[in-house]
Design a binder for these strands. Sequence first.
DNA 1: AATTGGGGCAACCGCGTGTGC
DNA 2: GGCACACGCGGTTGCCCCAAT
Length: 445
Amino acid sequence: MAPDASGGLRNPSTAIKSKHALKKGPWTTSEDMILVEYVKKHGEGNWNAVQRNSGLMRCGKSCRLRWANHLRPNLKKGAFSAEEEKLIVELHAKLGNKWARMAAQLPGRTDNEIKNYWNTRLKRRQRAGLPVYPEEVAQQEKQLQLNSSSSVLASSHRPNQTQLNFYETFNSQQKIAPPQNQPNTPYINQQLKLYRANNGSLALSLATSNSSFTPSVLPAAPFFNQGLSNPLPIPSLLQYNSLNYGINAGPEIGVVGLPSIQSPMQGAVTPAASSSDFVMGATSSDGAEDQYDVETDFSRCNNSGLLEDLFGESQALACPEKQEDPFVAAAGNVHEETAAFEFGQGNASSDNNYEGPETKAPGEAIAPMDDDLMNLLDNFPLSVPIPDWDEGNGSESPVLTNGTNGTIENQPDASQQNPVAASTGTANQDWNFGSCLWNNMPSIY
DNA sequence: AATTGGGGCAACCGCGTGTGC
DNA sequence: GGCACACGCGGTTGCCCCAAT
């Protein structure tokens, strides 16, 4: 365990370093009383003022946490009921590690509580060799997603199997509403895709197009970031899982990396020389242990604002009149999938407010991007190390997946890659199920 | 009785977002 | 637009308790 950066302040005995230092560590009852009294008098919020006005030697953050997790009224204490546990499992299947949003569905429970519960449960089940999700939850959600996505698959224009080892590693779409003062302007489709060609190269493409707007409703569509003013809608984990989408990344790309905003790079990166192409060179992994670890860390990516910028820029640049694929996937034979899911511009207040699925005809209008946008893509964070738990399934070819509608190609038994349907005890603790979601995608099963 | 390891929980940290100036 | 501040979220860490050995 790493030492406390504060120099041992987590230890209550050393929690107070000086007269002016803020206290850390466990709260005392007297501190609780002070905080409760303060909130009674002044209400919640403005937490930094608590220390100034109450003499409590705690930072605002600490006060807020203490209040939210322990002192606020209507908090439910004690073990989770069976109903709550079931709900948590279901919510996690839909939302991933979105503890705050899960907590919103569980009155009286805090995100911290839920997070602790889940992590403990995850460890326990992994140790016991049990699937993370009960079969009933997996089946239920799988069916939901199959129902909602079968039409898309049926009409998909699949890439030539000889051309791609995997396809649509990362394929997200959103629609951008026309300006209010131009109601007749078509919606702009934006589509971000990651390809891998048969030579092992990866290519990321962002395309925009205009299209008619046909709202429909799909269940459970966790979005990239609920706080985004123009949120990037995210296909749900279940959607992804039910389709068995993923990437069959051969051992030759055991480590493929792009700069991740938070995570240190775990693999070599071959940035695209051209601003219009984003190409990750396949690199060799440490074959000795098959120590693969896949982590794209899109949870940070989405918070970085980079994608926002990307799509914002795309929106600004989109030109419905021009119909030209802005990206040439540099890795040669890349087929542009046109039957991807499309997600409507999300309402930040509603996770289910997205459109799709719908299909696009091949060659549908795609507006060009300029070099600025390509530069953004050049910095698109993506690292694809391969998890070591993969060695447990005896596969030499880790399957790189994502939370969107990627596609597993060359997967003889895709169900083995589906954590919902087939989680096994082979996964070690490095595997965080949340990483299977879009917001942490891609990962390996 | 002492030791050890895991579970449960509380708290902290880093980072992202929103807002006001 | 830039900056500071407040707030929230998710990940991580540390401590305590307890059962197993």
